Each structure stands twice: as C-alpha cells, then as structure tokens.
Amino acid sequence: MTRRRMLGLVGGGMILAAGGGAGWAATREPQLAGRPWQLAGTYEGPRERALSWALLAPNPHNRQPWIADLREEGIVTLRADLGRLLPETDPYSRQITIGLGAFLELMRMAAAADGYRVEIVPFPDGEDPSELDGRPVARAVFLKEPDVAREPLFAQALARRSNKEPFDMTRPVPAASLERIGDVVRGTRFGNTVTEAEVVALRALTREALRIEVETPRTFQESVDLFRIGWREVDANPDGIDFTGPLFESLRMAGLFTREAAADPSSQVYRAGLDAVFANADSAMGHLWLVSRDNSRVGQLAAGVDWLRVNLAVTTEGLGVQPLSQALQEYPEMDGLYREIHARLAPEGGTVQMFARVGFGAVVPPSPRWSLESKIRNA
C-alpha cells in the first residue's frame, strides 16, 4: 500500500483537500483516507489534473520528493524537495531521481489522456552527479494537442501498487508475461528471469543485501526514523513507512512497538521485522531489472520513466511487484554485493537502476491512510 501527502498550491488552493471527518478518529484510522485516488483528475486546470495523477507515482520510502512550480503559464518546473532525501541508503540521490522520473511519466500519461502533449526537458540548467540541488530536475511544457497518442498503460494508474506481502509460491510466473512487460520499456534495458536456479540465487543475494542494510545501524535507522506507527502518526506525517491497523495499534498502545524497539537488535520487534523482510525476498517467483547505459541524472530519470511503465504493465498482467534494490545502494558496506549484482545482471556494462521481485499475490486495495505532499509554488 502507498499513501500520499497533500498536493497543494502555495498561495491559493489545493490539489487534494485534507478531508476525513470525525468519524475516522473513532475507527482509529488516519483521516486522509483514499482521497488521492478518489480525486485524481478532478481539477480544473490541465496541469493540476495531470499532477493529481502524478502524485500516485512510486518513489523510494514514499518520500514524495517533488516540488512543482506553476509560476510560468502552461509549464510545470519540477524540483527535488531537498528535505526528503535518503542520505544514508541513497547517498547520491540516484533512487530519488528515479522516483522523480516516474512522477514525470505519470504526469505525461495523464496529460495525454486529457489531450495535452508534454515536452519535457530534463535538467535544463545542468546536473550534478554527486548530489541533487536546487536546480530544476525537469521543465515540462503543456501543449494542447487533441490527437496526442494515449497510453493504454494509464488505465492501470489507480490500481498500481507495490506489493509488500509474500507471494504465492504455488503459482509460477509465466515467462510470456515478463516478455510483454519488457515490451513497454523505452530508455533502459529490461532483464528478467523465472529460471529456478537463477531465482534461488537472486533470493539469496537479496536476503544478504537486506541483512546488511538492517544490520548497519545508520542505514537501518534511516528507515526506522520514517516509521509511522499508528493512525495519529500517519495523519501527522503521511509519508514514510506505514504501520497501521488493529495489530500495530494494539502493539503501539501496549508500548511493544516503538522506534526504539525496532532499532534494537536484541528486541523481538527487530527480529520479527527482519523475518518479515526475509519472507518477502524468499517468496520471489521471478525477478526483473532495469539497466541504463550510464549513471547520469538523465539516465536515472529515464529509468524512472521505465520503472513506472513496468509497474503499470505488471498490474496489467495481474502480477505483483516489489522493488528490492538494496544491493544497488552505493554505501561502503554494500560494495561487495553491488559489484556482484552488476556482474550478474549487467555483465555487458551499464548501471542496474532497479531490481524487483515478481509473483502472484493478493490484490492490494487503495490504502485509506496514504496521502501526499507536493508543494506547488503559484506566485
């Protein structure tokens, strides 16, 4: 499940109303409900309509790292929200940039469905490979063009989810499905496997990468700091990693599930969390990945475009997908696995930008507790 903060027009208006009502508090559910999905595409201006869809794009740790500037008529200037980066696990903001690319692609698809072609210029004022800064990530010009080609994939925008539950290990993933998913990729190389020996090896690699991230205190603490435990915390900060529902509410109220316990290797909460992430990795019934020619910012945006497209195509095929890109993270403790996964998946060169498990699982409904903040500056 994913949640999204409120997309607002600073200086007047909002894309998403805070909504809710007192009744939600009685059920111990966050008040922002599923309004991003309910209200997508319901706004007056073409840019606002497209942005109300774009905020549903996948992004790392649900950081929602986008700032959209509408001060120029007919143009969206996208910048990174530098307060929403992941410096420990994503020190060069590569994954954040991929999320911004996914945002741009869903915005483009939504505009096309509305009869607008969007011309996107990536990093119009240049890029820094070592860090994101205040310069624009992209400049997008909206042009009315009723005959613009519509994207069939856009029909899956409301249904797309990252499935964070174990997959059904009795149901193999059809190789033909992965071939069709690969057909939607535009700017990166698509790789996949359902071969048992390869899947088993990649499960083991993924498990080891997860272990390293969790057992490296500073990288795991980055995730723990983003835990939102219980509906009150989700309402206060509807981003990050969601822990709501009767079980987590009960554990919170009993003082058994806290950020301190989650970060303590001697605690039951810590051990249970590690077992849960291992269970997901171990249930992979196939894997897919995206490789770019280089690791430039433009290449990372292109990977985000394809990651969004792959997610929608996975949904079309009735499959579930969850990114498990820990081995792709560029911090010292992960260096050995980083080299290994590149040797396995990109022996001909390039950068593996995304890696994920696929399989069949329960349909994940729109979460009543995920919302969005994307600040739009409208002078």
Rank of each mutant, 00 (worst) to 15 (best):
A236E: 11
A236P: 00
N237I: 05
D239W: 09
D239T: 05
G240V: 07
I241L: 08
I241Y: 01
D242V: 14
D242W: 13
D242H: 03
T244S: 14
G245N: 13
P246E: 13
L247G: 02
L247N: 08
L247M: 15
F248N: 15
F248A: 11
F248E: 01
F248Q: 13
E249R: 14
S250A: 15
L251T: 12
L251K: 00
L251S: 04
R252F: 09
M253S: 13
M253F: 14
M253Q: 15
A254S: 15
A254F: 15
A254Y: 14
G255P: 02
G255S: 11
G255Q: 00
L256G: 14
L256E: 13
L256A: 14
T258Y: 13
R259P: 04
E260I: 07
A261L: 15
A262E: 13
A262D: 10
A263R: 00
A263I: 04
A263V: 04
D264T: 05
D264C: 06
D264W: 03
P265A: 12
S267F: 09
S267L: 06
Q268T: 09
Q268F: 10
Y270K: 07
Y270Q: 07
Y270W: 12
Y270E: 06
R271A: 09
A272W: 04
G273D: 03
G273Q: 05
L274D: 00
D275W: 06
D275N: 05
A276E: 10
V277Y: 06
V277I: 14
F278P: 00
F278R: 02
F278I: 00
N280L: 13
N280V: 05
A281I: 07
A281Y: 04
A281G: 04
D282V: 00
D282N: 12
S283T: 13
S283D: 02
S283K: 01
A284D: 03
A284F: 04
M285V: 04
G286C: 04
G286N: 07
G286F: 13
H287F: 15
H287I: 02
L288A: 06
W289Q: 03
L290T: 00
L290P: 01
L290R: 06
L290S: 03
V291H: 05
S292V: 07
R293L: 09
D294L: 10
D294A: 10
N295V: 04
N295F: 11
N295K: 09
R297N: 09
R297F: 11
R297Q: 09
V298P: 01
